[in-house]
């Protein structure tokens, strides 16, 4: 199958990109193209206009600031996020998720923001950033705004973006001392593969107790799912085996997964319990270090 026919635009500024989107309703933004072009080739997506954001200067920056935290620009490649020394040091789970998103070639093309905006329930980069309370930076005809990533996903392939809006960056706050994060995903082919089920957690410790716990589950609903009741079980507690066990069981009850080519609903539910236990335990250990 060849790609369907479209006009290609390569604006050089965010303002130009917004103006183009206003002028060409139905146009889609493209960064690495590793999702969009597949949809056009294999899933029958037909577009009149494709707007590449790659020529917009400055969008590929990655910064790790002692006070402001982590910022990943819209065209920063998965490969660069995965290997960024400061991300590896301060946000290792973000690097791990970027690395686990896809194979080397796709990591050299695809972007973290693209993965988020594609809004697949299986997006590898979402759960960790969600757990960290990340925000997306949005530019649009109405100006600039920030939105918690938690409000960004509305359904499979659907985001909270308004017409002619563009996500220019994702920001993760500076992590508090004694914070631990973890993300585990499963797929039939082991690693670097499309995720059948995944869970991420962030834990902030106060003494031995969890002051803050955030848990997000991927591939088990139309969007990544926050396991609020599970968080409540762990919050304020020391993560003993009993608490972890209870949290795992609760997490499985908080999702209503579907069956698809990658796993059955029942298996996904069971794995949510297993992975929740594992990420809580990992994040807890990391937070204690």
């Amino acid at each position: 199958m060849r790609l369907s026919h479209f006009d290609y635009h390569a604006p050089e500024t965010v303002a130009q990109a917004i103006a183009l989107m206003q002028a060409k309703p139905g146009a889609r933004l493209m960064a690495g193209g590793t999702d969009l072009l597949i949809k056009m080739r294999h899933a029958g997506l037909k577009l009149q206009d494709v707007i590449s954001v790659k020529s917009i200067k400055g969008l590929n920056t990655i910064t790790v600031d002692e006070n402001k935290g982590l910022s990943i620009g819209a065209t920063a490649l998965l490969a660069d996020v995965a290997l960024h020394p400061d991300i590896l040091k301060y946000y290792p789970t973000v690097a791990q998720a970027a690395r686990g998103t896809a194979n080397a070639q796709v990591r050299n093309m695809g972007t973290v923001i693209g993965n988020l905006c594609n809004a697949s329930p299986a997006a590898d980069n979402a759960p960790t950033l969600l757990a960290m309370n990340a925000e997306v930076e949005i530019h649009g005809p109405g100006g600039q705004r920030r939105m918690p990533l938690e409000q960004f996903f509305k359904g499979p392939g659907i985001t909270a973006l308004q017409p002619a809006e563009i996500v220019t960056a994702v920001h993760a706050p500076k992590l508090a001392p004694h914070t631990g994060t973890a993300y585990i995903s499963l797929s039939a082919r082991g690693q670097l593969d499309c995720t059948a089920v995944g869970v991420a957690a962030m834990i902030v410790l106060k003494g031995k107790a969890c002051e803050e716990v955030r848990i997000f589950i991927s591939s088990c609903g139309p969007t990544p799912v926050r396991a609020l009741k599970t968080e409540a079980i762990a919050r304020g507690k020391e993560l003993t085996e009993a608490v972890i066990e209870q949290a795992g069981n609760q997490a499985a009850g908080e999702v209503k997964p579907i069956a698809d080519v990658r796993a059955s609903a029942g298996y996904r539910e069971k794995m949510v319990a297993v992975l929740t236990r594992r990420v809580l335990s990992q994040a807890y250990t990391r937070a204690s270090e």
Binding site: A188, R189, G190, Q191, L192, D193, C194, R262
Partner: peptide
């Protein structure tokens, strides 16, 4: 992607 032929890993 979903026909899971083993890879080098």
């Amino acid at each position: 992607l979903d026909y899971k032929m083993p890879n080098a890993m």
